[in-house]
Design a protein around this nucleic acid. Structure first.
Lengths: 147, 147
DNA sequence: GACTAGATGAGAATGAATTGCAATATCAAG
DNA sequence: CTTGATATTGCAATTCATTCTCATCTAGTC
């Protein structure tokens, strides 16, 4: 009963999307997608490689990088370039959400904010642009305040 | 009349800030600061090195990188980590402004938006954080609009 | 002018990400 | 189910940005 390897409705959807984009559905790609899908945090390429190797034999890191950029272009995942550290990845819908990075311990908290997203759209529109993607990173320090 | 090399009130201010931070005022640091101060765009470290070499002899790229991080910690400049390209730098006050990156040609447009900055503060505060710095990058595509 | 800690230059080293190429595997067609 | 065309992979070597090492130099001080 290795149901970790069973196709789930979620990962099945990935396979369909890959095929529709004219791409082949390989075990490596599915392993990477499955890894991202079960990740609570925002793993780096190497972290993804490590976990993906758990479910599929020996995935080379070249494949991880190649797959990640394919998936990014496909719009299935999002890449997050942080200062002074390797890029991190997350599955995504097409929502515009931001990240708070705790400068103390590196914790990343996601948030969504309608007002902020609306401003992004408006600002871009004012300048004659249409938004492709937004990256918001708020580096912040935990306030000593009352719990 | 090589007034490009004259100390300007602006660059003088830099010297004071360096000294106040207990750092030495070197010709390399001033050349880099002068370069940034006269840059209209957001140059990369290597572009800065190139231009700075124009005003000061042979500045090594190690020095450029070292100086840039010193200046960043000092809060005099800001580093902008973009996807798939070297970091870019800009002089900065402590304002929270964003950048629109034209996905077509790479043009970077700066903007300020009170409402957006206010949201950043509020969002962080809600989660018990105080903002250190914000990075907003809106990747956008030029609208075919009427011109 | 001399001293000393901080700063620099040159180049080697690191680490993330990309690429070339031969081997392999997917998927459509028979 | 077998085959063939070709997309994809693994491996290793490579690129590129950035950092580090260390001997030399220099700003700031006395």
């Amino acid at each position: 009963m290795t149901d970790a390897l069973e196709p789930s409705p979620k990962t099945d959807g990935f396979a369909v999307m890959l095929r529709e984009a004219g791409l082949r559905v390989t075990s490596q790609r599915m392993a990477i997608l499955r890894t991202l899908s079960s990740a609570e945090d925002h793993p780096t390429a190497e972290e993804i490689a490590g976990k993906a190797r758990g479910s599929d034999a020996s995935i080379s890191h070249a494949t991880v990088y190649r797959t990640l950029s394919v998936l990014e272009e496909l719009g299935l995942i999002r890449k997050l370039s942080l200062e002074n550290s390797p890029a991190r990845y997350e599955l995504c819908g097409d929502d515009d959400h931001g990240h708070i990075v705790d400068v103390g311990d590196g914790t990343i908290i996601e948030f969504e904010d309608e007002a902020m997203s609306a401003r992004h759209q408006a600002i871009a529109a004012d300048l004659g642009y249409e938004v492709v993607r937004c990256v918001t990173i708020i580096e912040a320090r935990k306030k000593p305040g009352p719990v």
